[in-house]
């Protein structure tokens, strides 16, 4: 049976293109390296100091959907997301969303506070620790965001900057199917 080489080349190119999207998707997928064990598992609990001196635990928010965002003041892409998180906290807070920012920063707390204030952050910012990053599969790049369902399970993990609409879709997923987009 004869096959046209051009057809074979086209098939190969199509497969390659599919792989491009597959790998791009892997970047945003909790099953990718470092996050495979966390998908659909209970989010590791932690206790971290907040900028206002309180100690907050993740388990304090059980029953809420949590957007857990690892960021740093030196991370430009993180800065783009922060106003979106502010909007989403405002929009979905009444429905049970809680955004938590974990600053993986070596800057003094007052600098982190100043930066957060400048960004108009309306959600708690916690001072991150290496071990918390390790609990979450090793936060190797920022931003890294985990979406935690009301029952405390990690349902999505995203590396790097993605679109606001993708973030919002994940928030809705974490909140549960009953939440309709406004």
């Amino acid at each position: 049976m004869k096959r046209d080489p051009v057809v074979l080349i086209v098939i190969a190119i199509v497969i390659s293109v599919m792989l491009v999207f597959g790998i791009q998707k892997a970047r945003h997928n909790p099953t990718s390296a470092g996050g495979a064990k966390l998908l659909n598992q209970p989010a590791p609990d932690f206790a971290l100091a907040s900028l206002d001196g309180k100690t907050l635990k993740l388990s304090d928010y059980h029953g809420k959907a949590v957007l857990l965002n690892f960021w740093a003041t030196w991370c430009e892409p993180c800065k783009i997301e922060m106003p979106w998180f502010v909007d989403l906290q405002r929009k979905y807070g009444p429905q049970g969303l809680q955004v938590l920012g974990v600053a993986m920063d070596d800057a003094p707390a007052k600098d982190i506070a100043g930066f957060s204030q400048k960004m108009g952050v309306n959600y708690p910012i916690l001072i991150g620790k290496e071990e918390v990053g390790t609990q979450y599969g090793g936060v190797q790049y920022l931003p890294s965001t985990f979406y935690i369902s009301r029952d405390g399970k990690i349902i999505e993990r995203v590396f790097g900057l993605v679109s606001r609409s993708e973030i919002e879709a994940n928030v809705q997923k974490a909140l549960g199917a009953q939440v309709a987009a406004k």
């Binding site: 004869k2 096959r3 190969a12 390659s16 190797q140």
Partner: peptide, 26 residues
């Protein structure tokens, strides 16, 4: 011709995968 086509498509495939592996940030 078929063999040549297979060879070429395999090359494109391998190159694509190699390129992607390089570009994947993780």
């Amino acid at each position: 011709r078929v063999n040549q086509g297979r060879l070429l498509s395999a090359a494109v495939f391998v190159l694509g995968v190699a390129g992607l592996a390089q570009d994947s940030p993780g």
